[in-house]
Design a protein around this nucleic acid. Structure first.
Lengths: 331, 331
DNA sequence: ATGAAAGCGCTAACAG
DNA sequence: CTGTTAGCGCTTTCAT
């Protein structure tokens, strides 16, 4: 249904040439006489011809498709990555196809298998923690695999992102240097959001190095959100009133924490620290600390690699592109 | 490159059957002997065979692809629509392909043309204000066209959304009923965000009916954001200190306005009103008014229509699915 | 500069 | 239950 549209053959007939000539004319091949080309173009216009990429790709054995798998759409971070990819692909003739894993390894495997059946020219996946069977599938696809966001692990092929372990460490160092000592932690679904778990681990590592520890914490089990962050913060502040800093699994949660601190009249004596550097966080009436993740840029770089893995790779000589998040708002 | 993988023929050979039998076995056709099926499955496993959907779709003349075009990814609203679509498609065997228009009609046309070349089974586009040539292209694609989000206009085929004109009207009525009289307006890029413009027009219509008008306004020219809303609010409050309510183009801007009101110690005597009903807005330490748009649901309904336009249509008897946003926070 | 033949990997439509 | 014959709409390759 709906797949029935005019074909190259009909265009060719209307223009009084062969399929091949029509094909060449449409693709702008050099060896077609100007008038023939014009006749073909007219016929195309006339019939409202739209090429069939299924046939094109099957025949030419290239799809110009980039498969992209991200865990979620309900946090603005991944849409921004996708926007970056979309921008990075612009003008390259490549098309992105997106799939969602919902932070679920099994679902991720299925989605990847599904996308591979379209024979994409490259695939971009989030994180480095795919189970072995997924990795095997990715390897045997025999196309460039670009793992993004995370750097803590062993990449399959290309890798663009940042070390979340180090991001947690650096944030802890900055906060301790600024004089913070009584830390709490608030996060959620860490068994699914592995990057948030790595940040927490890094943070805790530095606390221990400094003979410190989280005095209290609250862990939600639904996905992170501003409302959840606010709720858990109220709970934690009630249980542990003398914290001077709370580290959150991300900025959404930290913004909720900031709201809670305002409501509890604690915004002056406790600092909330998150991760991502959301636009929103910068506009807040109270200051929060955060590490800015260059997520849009990560998307653009990954897209560039997907377009031309050879050239992009040659120029950088390494298959790993590492970013270091910038810390702001620590006082 | 990369498109070379094992084929059905190889699987069939390895299993000692014909291509057709292998094909039937893999698709779970009823008339294949259990042992034959097992042999085929083994061969599939062995070779790491992944079906080629290009060939499948070309041959069977159906793609199970749903094309989706949204204007942007930088506002959480559209990712949520996509998540809804993704959820609504789950289990149907359909796959969504996304494209971005950047709120640009020309780009939208190109993106749509591009997507149509994949011969999708249905297409979902945002809004009702496509230029004529785009509409013509959509019509001649001869597949279900589902226009989402907006209801104010003439749909091509299916239509799922809400009336933004009425949403603006209702918000104005509610605010006036609550005693608000001195209104300001803050928005941005209204020549591109047509739905925001429709809300503003509806709002203004009701103001006029009540012999009221916007006392002051500020219009940004970049896309809406919390930071922009905050900045423009500070400006407007300085120029017009005695407003008692500001209507914003959406919740992002209104949240910025709420932050500004806190910073200006005006949060008790002025009400900020937006549109969308963001999760964030509900967690704010100050109250804002908003109309909750059922964007995720719109995505799910659209997806269902894309899967089975006949059945879905029969049950509702109409090609239009209208939602009415719920107003909250008006005081 | 143009055309004819072959085939991409799969399924539909018939046989047996 | 299984196999055979034709394509799907395009490009590739080789002629002319």
């Amino acid at each position: 249904m709906g797949i029935r549209k005019s074909t190259l053959e009909e265009v060719a007939a209307a223009a009084g040439v062969s399929k091949m000539t029509a094909s060449r004319a449409l693709r702008g091949a050099p060896d077609v006489s100007p008038e023939t080309r014009q006749r073909v173009l007219n016929a195309t216009e006339q019939l409202g011809y739209v090429g069939n990429r299924l046939a094109l790709s099957l025949s030419s054995r290239k799809t110009n498709l980039v498969a992209v798998v991200v865990p979620s759409m309900s946090n603005i971070v991944f849409p921004e990555v996708l926007a970056g990819i979309s921008a990075g692909l612009e003008g390259s003739g490549m098309q992105a196809v997106f799939g969602l894993s919902d932070y679920d390894a099994g679902k991720e495997r299925d989605v990847i298998r599904d996308m591979l059946s379209w024979r994409p020219s490259a695939i971009i996946v989030t994180g480095l923690d795919q189970p072995e069977d997924t990795v095997k599938m990715l390897r045997s696809a025999d196309i460039p695999v670009i793992q993004i966001m995370d750097l803590d692990g062993t990449p399959i092929d290309f890798n663009v992102g940042l070390s979340h372990g180090k991001a947690g460490e650096e944030m802890a160092r900055a906060l301790i240097a600024a004089g913070r000592r009584r830390f709490g932690y608030i996060g959620s679904a860490l068994e699914r959001d592995l990057r948030a778990a790595k940040r927490r681990a890094g943070f805790e590592r530095v606390l221990h190095e400094n003979r410190l520890a989280f005095i209290g914490q609250r862990l939600g089990d639904t996905l992170s959100s501003v409302g959840l962050g606010k709720h858990l913060t109220h709970e934690l502040l009630r249980a542990e009133p003398n914290l001077d800093c709370i580290y959150y699994s991300n900025d959404d949660m930290a913004v909720g924490g900031a709201f809670a601190s305002v409501e509890a009249f604690r915004s002056d004596d406790i600092l909330m620290a998150g991760f991502n550097g959301l636009e929103l966080a910068a506009a807040l009436p109270v200051r929060i600390a955060t590490s800015r993740s260059p997520r849009r840029l990560i998307g653009e770089v990954a897209a560039r690699l997907a377009c031309d893995p050879i050239a992009s790779n040659a120029s950088s000589s390494s298959k790993i592109t590492a970013f270091v998040p910038e810390i702001t708002g620590v006082v």
